[in-house]
């Protein structure tokens, strides 16, 4: 005859007889858990957008519509061609070139430059052609006087 089993008489253990987890398991577990946690940045982002979830569906739909219309308006505004800058006048470009360089270019380009060509320039700035224009002030004045008046008025 079998005696009946009584739990009270069986030696009580804090847990069933089971093999222990691998050595060092509980030393590594915290690190493995920490590695699985969502990133703090993602958590903060989620928190930052939590207010959106708390809005009513109607309000959320309205907000979405406004956002879409706003993005359309912004893209339309930004896609327009930028205002055209006024084209610089040709003389303005020439004005930016130093006179000495202009004179040097004229002298080296093979073109015969005569006193008449540079008379106006030296009249405005007497020292500019000192290095290469061998003409006295009187000679230049004569050349200028000899030019037709309709040409000089445009210089």
């Amino acid at each position: 005859m079998n005696s009946s089993f009584k739990l009270d008489t069986h030696p009580r253990r804090p847990r069933p007889l089971m093999s222990e987890p691998p050595a060092g398991y509980f030393d590594q577990l915290p690190g493995r858990v920490m590695a699985r946690l969502p990133q703090t940045q993602a958590r903060e982002t989620a928190t930052a957008w939590r207010w959106l979830a708390q809005l009513s569906p109607t309000l959320r739909t309205g907000l979405a519509s406004v956002a879409i219309l706003g993005s359309f308006a912004a893209s339309f505004w930004l896609s327009g061609s930028p205002p055209l800058a006024p084209a610089p006048m040709p003389t303005a470009v020439l004005d930016a070139v130093p006179h000495a360089e202009l004179v040097g270019y004229l002298l080296s380009s093979g073109t015969q430059v005569e006193n008449a060509d540079l008379a106006v320039l030296t009249a405005a700035r007497p020292s500019i052609a000192n290095g290469f224009l061998h003409a006295s002030a009187e000679e230049l004045t004569e050349v200028l006087d000899a030019q037709p008046s309709d040409e000089t008025m445009y210089l």
Partner: peptide, 30 residues
């Protein structure tokens, strides 16, 4: 993070064995 690490260290054994007694297998319990 530091506080949570402490929490895991404090309760990991109890939680593990509570789970292990239910699912028996170590890999599942882990």
């Amino acid at each position: 993070n530091l506080a949570f690490n402490q929490l895991v260290r404090k309760y990991q054994s109890k939680v593990y064995w509570h789970v292990r007694k239910m699912v028996i297998d170590h890999a599942d319990a882990d």
